[in-house]
């Protein structure tokens, strides 16, 4: 099977200039490989470095050393740790999705527009994008009466489901999920699980952070635990 993501000796250290150049280690010597259609889960205590690893892959954090080789369908193998900004913008629009814990959106942008624009940025046509966006919002059980409302007014669970809809609709080649079920009740988790399984079948590779171990064991193929910034593979309990 094709390797989609290969992380080698990834280290991230934050330098706090205002505090006498104090160094904070985010993660160190992270090594793992993910194949196409595989989903790996990352677990660990709060502050262990889980989100740091994910944000280094998405390049929200600049890795201090190591490589993150992504097998892009459009650009071939690229090292996300070293790629120039334009390359990162292109792969983000087309191939890599990120589901953050919090939804950030313009104050007067409707829920439907938010999802539609993900597809427009990818180059899809307006009509097709609207149809797909409606189907996705329906799948994530966001009531139709909220589609033209502003997400600022949504509940935590609705915001998270909208976040999931926005990231999953473009069917990215690589999807990074930061606690995708954190604010969801049991009933709302079912469509998330269904969508993850569907994306896996269609070849999306995923790396996700979980505190919800029961949900995680049903969807991931392998599980890595991170402790004091270091990574080790553990079984799926």
């Amino acid at each position: 099977m094709r390797v989609i993501l290969k992380v080698t000796d990834l280290c991230k250290t934050f330098t706090l200039h205002r505090l006498n150049q104090r160094k904070i280690i985010g993660c160190q010597n992270i090594n793992f490989t993910v194949q196409q259609g595989q989903f790996i889960g990352i677990t660990g205590k709060s502050g262990a470095g889980k989100t740091t690893v994910l944000k280094c892959i998405y390049r929200t954090y600049l890795p201090s050393s190591g490589s993150i080789v992504f097998n892009s369908a459009l650009q071939g193998e690229i090292d996300l740790a070293q790629s120039d900004v334009q390359q990162i913008i292109t792969v983000r629009r087309q191939e890599i999705g990120y589901i953050a814990q919090f939804l950030r959106v313009l104050p007067q942008m409707t829920a439907l527009d938010l999802v539609v624009e993900t597809l427009l940025a990818k180059g899809d046509h307006q009509e097709q994008a609207v149809q797909q966006a409606r189907a996705m919002l329906r799948h994530f059980q966001i009531p139709a009466k909220l589609w033209d409302a502003y997400p600022h007014t949504f509940s935590g669970g609705e915001k998270l489901r909208l976040n999931l809809a926005q990231a999953m609709i473009k069917r990215p080649r690589l999807l990074l999920l930061d606690e995708p079920t954190a604010a969801l009740d049991e009933q709302s988790k079912a469509p998330v699980q269904e969508m993850i399984i569907e994306l896996k079948k269609s070849g999306t590779t995923m790396v996700g952070i979980f505190h919800d171990l029961a949900f995680m064991k049903d969807v991931v193929d392998s599980n890595y635990q991170i402790s004091q910034g270091c990574f080790k593979e553990v079984g799926i309990a």
Binding site: R59, Y61, I88
Partner: peptide, 9 residues
């Protein structure tokens, strides 16, 4: 750089 990177790192 990338806006999110400039803001978060």
């Amino acid at each position: 750089g990338l806006t999110d990177q400039v803001m978060e790192d």
